[in-house]
């Protein structure tokens, strides 16, 4: 399995859309067979960002917050996404290696209540102020 984790200062990078570094780990039967750091293209270039991952044949991505259109592009590319994850990258990787990764234990604040779909959890029922909810071309609420 090829696992990618966006990292920043040793922790999971806060926002995938602008994350600068990717830790790429190849695992085989619970053992790490390759472990490399990759730079992601700077700026908000979403297509090139996603194509780096598909080019590396990533199976699973663990990352922090990710905007919906980007999340959809990732899953459309066949990548299993664990998003809105926070914490020490090393600890998350260990948990993955031992098959004990429990996403709930690593949720970012405000992301643990009332999950309604993969990688998306509603906040703690806080009201929002008349925001225009549009997610760019092609986005459809799931």
């Amino acid at each position: 399995m090829r696992l990618a984790i966006t990292v920043w200062n040793g922790r999971i990078a806060p926002v995938f859309d602008v994350a600068g570094t990717l830790r790429l780990v190849e695992m085989d039967e619970g053992r790490v067979t390759a472990d490399n750091l990759l730079s992601l293209p700077p700026g908000g270039g979403v297509f090139s960002r996603v194509s780096v991952l598909t080019g590396q044949r990533i199976d699973v991505l663990v990352c922090g917050a990710v905007s919906r259109p980007v999340h959809r592009m990732l899953t459309d590319s066949g990548i299993q996404v664990h998003s809105f994850v926070s914490g020490e990258a090393k600890e998350v990787l260990e948990a993955f290696l031992h098959g004990s990764f429990d996403e709930k234990a690593y949720f970012m604040p405000g992301c643990g209540v009332g999950r309604n779909r993969q990688g998306r959890r509603r906040g703690a029922g806080l009201s929002r102020r008349g925001r225009n909810r549009s997610f760019g071309p092609g986005w459809k609420e799931v």
Partner: peptide
């Protein structure tokens, strides 16, 4: 942000605020 005060206080600001500016 959609994050309650109880959940936010004590946590890393970048993981609560999650902004495009945090890293760089």
């Amino acid at each position: 942000t959609g994050v309650s005060r109880e959940e936010a206080v004590g946590r890393e600001c970048s993981e609560v605020f999650r902004s495009s500016m945090c890293e760089t």
